[in-house]
Write a protein that binds this DNA or RNA. Structure first.
Lengths: 316, 316
DNA sequence: AGTTTGCTTTTTATGTGTAAAAAGCACAAT
DNA sequence: ATTGTGCTTTTTACACATAAAAAGCAAACT
């Protein structure tokens, strides 16, 4: 059965929204709420129904308005507002990046579904989507293998990232003087400076800036495969740093300064300078990631992690 | 319920295998058969049981041998040997590339599952896996949009392909003289010549040669993201040409000659020549694909294909 | 000691069922 | 004519069920 996470999230958002309405004043129309809360009208009506039931909303139909009584609406717990599929993603990433997920280990759907307390269908769906991240591989009829968050993975990831990033940077400096992208870039530069001014307190905000910057570069000549690939990067970094807070402030400060140097190189329109700044930034990002990669013998003894059974192995 | 496609395919393969055994001679052990037929021992036993039942195999346990009577084993129809998930893939590609799949059209799981006569679960799983090909996009809670097999798609695909291919070609010519890859390349060159000798009858064999060539190039410095991307190319070409046979002989002959020129450039170790040969080959491959792309206004009027409803649109 | 097989236990592929959410429709209100 | 609402129909997200296939185990056989 589908969970009502959508409803609960919408309800919680609606609580804030209603709080800003004067007691006795009209509630926005269902259509407007639907667009504000980003859910269908069906869900909006459910939210309104519950609010009416709890006495926060009075009247019905077109005459709906905020109750004159002071009602404190209890929100639903945060954890109930996230759909099962998203929970599985989080739990899996945690299991993979934090727990004992050694390269070569086999993953089995039933086990994960029991571990996470969800239906196998959901786990299976997740693994199928997750496949594109290059960290797991399917053995039809025989589960999945975890390929490991290894230094090889990081190296391969960054090789592609560098190709894509350089391509976009080169395209950027070919933009005409009057392209609006230059203004965006200047704006972004300022936001970096602002961040650096208060780096001690705001260093968490860097990751938003980071993705904004790379999205701006890629948007100059859009390519769905590149965007796709950046989703992978974003995902990896998101979870990786969520559980690895070491030196976070320091790391982000360095990266922000590298971004500024990179942006300045772009403004100079000097291809060589751009390539150097870009290369330096990526090199340091790679180092950071590499450091927390699974230490493994994979590059020394290939295939050491294969499992053995008394039957012949199937699949490639 | 799981279909027994695995069993039927294994059975059909086993029929050929048993045919080559002398009447009265011993049948290979279950373990050996399991490895030959690429299925588990469980399935092998089922195959043997059915063969015994039909009188083609006599004795049991270790004393199992081929029957002395001449039994003609009926194979299962080819169509029953392919798992549902693979059938869905084929049917979907056909629907997409051949039927009226206009860009912007929404795809809905229930509809497809009815159309294909399979459970929604399977369709859903397929769509999730297929997402990475960049032709469809998920709107959580509201189905999928087909982005269209358009010229933009082809252009984006080839932009990446060119980057990857050039990278691999450059890595190739940096290989030491005594690398075994050079011998592989020479071998491949010869196979191209052989094919061209009999191009009129063997032009279908080109696609194997094509993927062998590109796989050889990529294997010089392997990168899972590049391999992943080549899966997309392979998939697109596979289905595309399966339903578009126009000029196939001609196209393949041209491509084979381009490959030879490309290979010769690699042997020359001349970077400029390599880049030119590679560029020419990809350009002509792109042209071929472009010609059969969906003609659309997408580049003139952006967003013309959006659907409208009396409710606000959800999602990005 | 290493295979081979009979039998048992798990796991995967695929179908079915259902509450929640979205989409659609038609009439009412401005 | 547009916008809003009540109600109906579809579709999605998720749980659960089960035959088929795979994996595991130990006794039997070389």
């Amino acid at each position: 059965m589908k969970t009502d996470a959508t409803f609960k999230r919408a309800f919680n958002d609606a609580v804030d929204l209603v709080a800003s309405i004067e007691p006795g004043a009209a509630i926005p129309s269902e259509t407007v709420l639907s667009s504000n809360l980003k859910v269908s009208r069906t869900t909006v009506r459910k939210v309104l129904a519950v609010m009416a039931e709890r006495g926060a909303v009075a009247g019905s139909g077109r005459a709906r308005r905020k109750s004159r009584h002071k009602i404190r609406l209890e929100k639903f717990p945060q954890s109930e507002t996230v759909p099962i599929s998203a929970q599985v993603e989080t739990r899996f990433m945690q299991w993979m990046l934090r727990d004992d997920a050694q390269p070569g280990r086999t993953i089995n759907e039933l086990d994960l579904s029991r571990r996470f307390g969800v239906a196998t269908t959901v786990v299976r769906e997740f693994l199928n989507r997750f496949q594109r991240f290059g960290l797991i591989e399917k053995r039809p009829g025989a589960g999945w293998v975890f390929k490991g968050f290894t230094s090889t993975f990081a190296r391969e990831l960054f090789e592609i990232r560098e190709m894509f990033e350089l391509r976009s940077a080169r395209a950027f400096i070919r933009l005409p003087e009057d392209s609006p992208f230059w203004a965006h870039l200047a704006d972004l530069r300022q936001r970096h400076l602002d961040l650096l001014d208060e780096i001690d307190t705001r260093f968490h905000d860097f990751s938003d800036l980071d993705s904004a910057f790379h999205r701006l570069l890629n948007s100059v000549s859009p390519n769905r495969f590149i965007e796709n690939f950046f989703d992978i990067i974003t995902m990896i970094f998101h979870y990786h740093y969520q559980w690895n807070k070491r030196d976070e402030r320091q790391r982000n400060e360095v990266a922000a300064r590298e971004h500024i140097a990179y942006i300045d190189a772009l403004f100079s329109r000097d291809r060589i300078a751009v390539e150097r700044a870009c290369g330096m930034h990526l090199a340091s990002a790679r180092e950071t990631l590499m450091r927390s990669t699974v230490r493994t013998q994979e590059n020394v003894i290939k295939g050491c992690c294969q499992t053995h059974s008394n039957q012949s192995r199937l699949g490639p």
